Simulated scan of single mutants.
Amino acid sequence: MLKLENLSTPDPKVPLKSLSANFEAGKIYTILGRTGAGKTELLRTLIGLDPISEGAIHLDGSDLVSTPIRAREMAMVYQQFINYPHLDVLDNVAFPLRRKKLGKALARAKARDALAIVGLAGFETRLPSELSGGQQQRVALARAIVKHARILLMDEPLANLDYKLREQLREEFPRLLHENAEGIILYSTTEPAEAMQLGDELIVMHEGRIVAQGDPAALFDSPPSVDVARVISDPPISICAGEIRDGALLFSDGSGAGATGLTLSKDGPVQIAIRPDALTIGGDIFATVKLAEFSGSDTIVHLQLPFGEAVMLVDGIHEFHPGNPLDIMLDPTALLLFSHTGANITERTD
């Protein structure tokens, strides 16, 4: 088990702040956060590239902080690929094995297997300068895979690859763990869908802290705070000011939000979170289109409502023009409620 205890770092840009977490063998942990949340700093600290100011890192009870980088049983893949320009693809991938004094023939055989995993069979004799950016990233990924490291750290490793290839490589990660039962994969991303699809457990980071950890579906259904709800939602969740008054849920303009399926707490200010699929066309809420954009086979519509701004997800490709009026319906069963301090206070009726 990899264990972090009150881990902090002195990095002036994105310091880690009292991180504590356990990572069990045989699992993929996706680390989700916006740019600047501390994801890269966490991975760099684990592998030993950045120092710590407080706390501890242990692997199976052994102190990692005092362990040299090469002895940490870790491999890291960066978003910005790093390859050796003077070596061909095969020797780039075989390099860490040769450094460990593995025989040349065996090292190259293992390197060929790793290249096949990332879809680069047949590229063995090319130099990095003869490859595209995506192909160079795959070489770096193969070099990390071939090490068969106990812990594989991946810092947005598929960001520069096309959609189809990302899907193919994601399917390989569970197989890598199947072949290495003691292995742990930590995979950072800014994409909520990728984090929830890939991870056995999801870790959400915000401003250098771990703000949530658990089952991806459970965290999506019930984010513990408004910060987690914002990070985990794509298209973005909309947060509107409101209040509970005399047993009714009201938006800031005094209109009723509806409370079907909700148990309302005591009177007072609340933050009302509206998921994009909670809004549909055809209802009694007047809205004005601010912006529309396409995402895959869906249309994301940014709306101005009487009580604030919100985002609506519409199935299919549709044209909406800025300034167009729409009548919108809100599904109150899809709302989330947060306190004025940001804690989730949503209570569902049976």
Score class of each variant (00 low, 15 high):
I184L: 08
L165Y: 04
L90G: 03
L90K: 03
L102V: 15
D88R: 01
L115M: 11
N160E: 13
K104H: 03
N160I: 13
L176A: 05
R175A: 08
A107H: 01
P128Q: 02
A116K: 11
M154N: 04
A109L: 14
A116E: 15
M154D: 00
A94G: 08
V146Q: 01
G133Y: 08
R98M: 10
R112V: 14
S188L: 00
M154R: 02
L127V: 07
T190L: 00
K100I: 10
L169Q: 03
P174Y: 01
P96K: 02
K147M: 12
R150T: 12
E167L: 13
D162P: 13
A159Y: 01
T189F: 00
R138W: 03
V139S: 04
A181M: 12
L97D: 01
G122P: 11
K164Q: 15
K100A: 13
K110H: 07
P96H: 00
Q168S: 10
R175S: 11
K147A: 07
Q135K: 08
L127F: 12
P128I: 05
A149C: 12
K101H: 10
L127P: 10
A142V: 14
D88W: 01
F95I: 09
E171D: 15
E156Q: 03
I117V: 15
A114F: 01
Y187M: 05
Q135R: 06
G133F: 07
L106K: 13
A149V: 12
N160Y: 04
G103L: 11
V89I: 14
L90R: 02
R98H: 03
A140D: 09
D113W: 12
E171T: 08
G122R: 04
D155C: 08
E130P: 13
A121V: 14
L141V: 12
L106H: 09
D113F: 02
S129C: 15
K104C: 05
V93C: 04
A116I: 12
N180I: 10
R150S: 10
L158Q: 06
L158M: 14
R112K: 15
E130I: 11
A159M: 10
D88F: 06
L176T: 13
P128D: 06
I184C: 07
I185E: 06
I145P: 02
V146K: 00
A107D: 07
A181P: 15
D113T: 12
L127I: 13
S132A: 13
